[in-house]
Structure formats: structure tokens, C-alpha cells
Amino acid sequence: MQLDQPDSVIKTESLLVELGGLPILREVSVAVGSGELTALMGGNGSGKTTLVRALLGLIPHQRGRVELFGTPLEHFRDWHRVGYVPQRGAVVIKQATVGEVVASGRLARRRAFRPLSRHDHAQIEAALSEVGLLDRATSPFNELSGGQQQRVLIARALATDAELLVMDEPFAGVDLRVQDELAALIGRLNAAGTTVLVVLHETGALGPLLTNSIVLREGRVVHTGAPPQHATPHHEPPQPGRARLMTGIGEGAI
């Protein structure tokens, strides 16, 4: 538990989030310390994505409080410090180059009616080379493979100069080899000082790199601290290979 640590990047206290009158998150008090690589885990419907959305102010909370970088969410304005990587499936971009998608990450810093500055261009290039896609800047986003699209979305989040990356299921629908690549990338970013909160169904390839974990079940926190050793938060005996089997399904993009 990091609750009293002063340098908490994310902190919630007794958070209650209701959707359509139903309490989805109840009494959620969690903290993510600066520099950590934290997994937010739980089964389907446990409230992982809802918590992420509430943390970022995308949905309102009914009770409790959220702080980002020590500032209450209502007063938080330093959005350039936060990089959000939504689920790839939720992002449908019909017509854009990789470079254009990543450039939108700079908007947290840019003022309206001003063209991209030289510094903006440099940051976009740096973000693209960080994810290894600098040579694809002019490629159409929607013709990339699933793993490459995921890397573009990470680059877009990095382009804000993010100190905190919040990733929602980056491994959804990508094959094992790509998961390993993404895990290595996430680990590298974390080692370079970026705080990462990553929503995961299974720890998978990220398992050994995690420094902290939060496990939700039915909207309540059931575990914080060291990452759970086996794939799901239920008390089942560990099943080697199960995580791989489950997450390997769904990759079809070429």
C-alpha cells in the first residue's frame, strides 16, 4: 500500500462510481507511486476499465476523491503529464497517417491556431522512434497490424511528455510474440522513469516486470501490493500455460 506516500501519482479514497444507478466501484482506495509499474487486474466486469475512466475524469464519480499528481481531479490541469492509451479496439481512425495520429498527442501542449513547432516535431519523432516506428510515420494507421497500432497509440501518449502512462488492456487481440515486444517496450519506458498503470486480464509477459498490483473483484479492491503469481485473481491452482492460451486468441490483423 502506498496510501501515505507523498509522491503518489494516482490516489483514490473511498471512490464510489455508479453507472445507470448500479454501483460499479465501491470504496476503492488505491495509490500508484511515482516510478511504479502497476497492474490493475480482475476478471470481466470487475470494474478495471471503469476505474481507469474514473481516474482520468472520463466518467464522474459519485463519492470519494481522486488525486492526480497530488492535485484533486477537479482542479487538475497538467494533462500533458498523463498519457492515456485506450483499448485499441475502441479507436477507429479511418484516414490518418501514423505521424498524424502521434501528432495529436502534442495537443496537450499546443495552443489553438498555431502550427506545430520544431519542438513538437522533435517530440513526435522521439515518441515514434521510442516505439520503433519512425520509418512508418507516413503509413496509413488503419493498414498496420494490431501490434503496430498499439505501439502507435503508445507513441501518441508518449508525445505529450507523459510522466504517467495509463494503458487499458494493451495485450487485447495481439499474439504472444507481439505481447512480448510490447511488454519489453513498457518495461523500458518504466525503467526510464515513466510511471505506468496498466489494465491487464492476465499478467502474461509483463509479470516479471511489475512492481505493484491492484486486483479488483466485483468493484472492490481485493488485493494490493506484490503482483499475484497466477493469472486470475480467483483461488485456483496455478495453471501453467493457461494465460498464453487465453490471450493468444483474436489476433487476425495483418
Binding site: G57, V91, I93, S104, G105, R110, F113, A157
Partner: peptide, 22 residues
Amino acid sequence: IGLMPQLFAVCTDEAFAKVLGL
């Protein structure tokens, strides 16, 4: 034309645009 980057961001990914502070 002048607000192209902002409008593009809002139209392609509303949640991300919101987290940018737009």
C-alpha cells in the same frame, strides 16, 4: 483549417482528446 489538429483529435478519439485536456 485553423483548428484542424484539435478537431481531428476530437473526431478520431474522444476519450483521448479529453485526457489531453481538450
